[in-house]
Design a protein around this nucleic acid. Sequence first.
DNA 1: CTACGTGCAAAGGATTTGCCAGGCT
DNA 2: AGCCTGGCAAATCCTTTGCACGTAG
Lengths: 174, 174
Amino acid sequence: MDHATHTHAKAPQGKGADPTRIERLCIERGLKMTGQRRLIARVLSEAEDHPDVEELYRRAIALDSKVSIATVYRTVRLLEEKGILERRDFGGGRSRYDPADRGHHHHLIDVDTGTVIEFEDEEFERLVEGIAARYGFTLVQQRLELFGKKADAAPDARRRPGPGAGPGAKKDGE
Amino acid sequence: MDHATHTHAKAPQGKGADPTRIERLCIERGLKMTGQRRLIARVLSEAEDHPDVEELYRRAIALDSKVSIATVYRTVRLLEEKGILERRDFGGGRSRYDPADRGHHHHLIDVDTGTVIEFEDEEFERLVEGIAARYGFTLVQQRLELFGKKADAAPDARRRPGPGAGPGAKKDGE
DNA sequence: CTACGTGCAAAGGATTTGCCAGGCT
DNA sequence: AGCCTGGCAAATCCTTTGCACGTAG
């Protein structure tokens, strides 16, 4: 778990107080850092879940209402191209974003509650490397998503997707 | 390329010829089998790949031009809900479909060519069961996608050393 | 100062749905 | 004959984009 960045520089200088992990990465990649990008970078750095664009937008305007959803889309796309963010799809029509610097992990989604559990597994890593090698491939990326339900609690919650996208975890319980 | 049906060349695909796997499943699930559903079932049964709705539609009208894309969407969604089809997302904005009765398999996508290789792996199955159990879950569904490139045949001459690090080669779906 | 970022709204692509006609059991 | 399906097009949902202006470097 990464705790808050305890950089001593806390001078209340408007906004550019302590550069977040994401912001630092942006600068490294030579991105022009504007107020809204800094804001979005901060939201992303503080996110511990996998927010979609709408959610990012909501969190951003909560801090500073001078961002448009279009900018969030643009920024998120830019960061993805720069390898700073990873776009995920848990099957809900909307893309979810995951800071790439958080390390490799996979997801276990509770189909009843929509909760997303992150996990890592060395054995799995070795296994897939082996599978790829078996076909003469070198892995560039991998995606593992497990959808399950709590072994004990099995209240059949019939959730109708309704007008929208298919079934999927819409909330990232947090 | 698809070849002409050499079985009953006389009967213009009336119905009741040879019920396809998918059609049989539909009947088992108590679905009303209409002409277009039978048609779509046939297309799906014959598909060896992972077509998207548009592709299914194309193949369907090639056999019988009396289907609308809306029906394909509806049918495909219905079959997914009945567990006859599995919806996949290889990242291209469109959903791809996979008959669930083909057995459990995963995908290895060649990021250079877009080729999709299917594979199964018992060890993997055991491993994920274990991971789920570790968190007290029973697996309902799982998704494993490997993206890689050929280890040998990859004389990629387009080395693009960008600012900072990261390949950034974003060759998304087809 | 110049190139690039941003806002707004309209465009766009994929998928869904209302309504009425028609087919399957 | 009834209920459900299928067509068509309008409606949604998510995401992208054109244009005019503000700002980082």
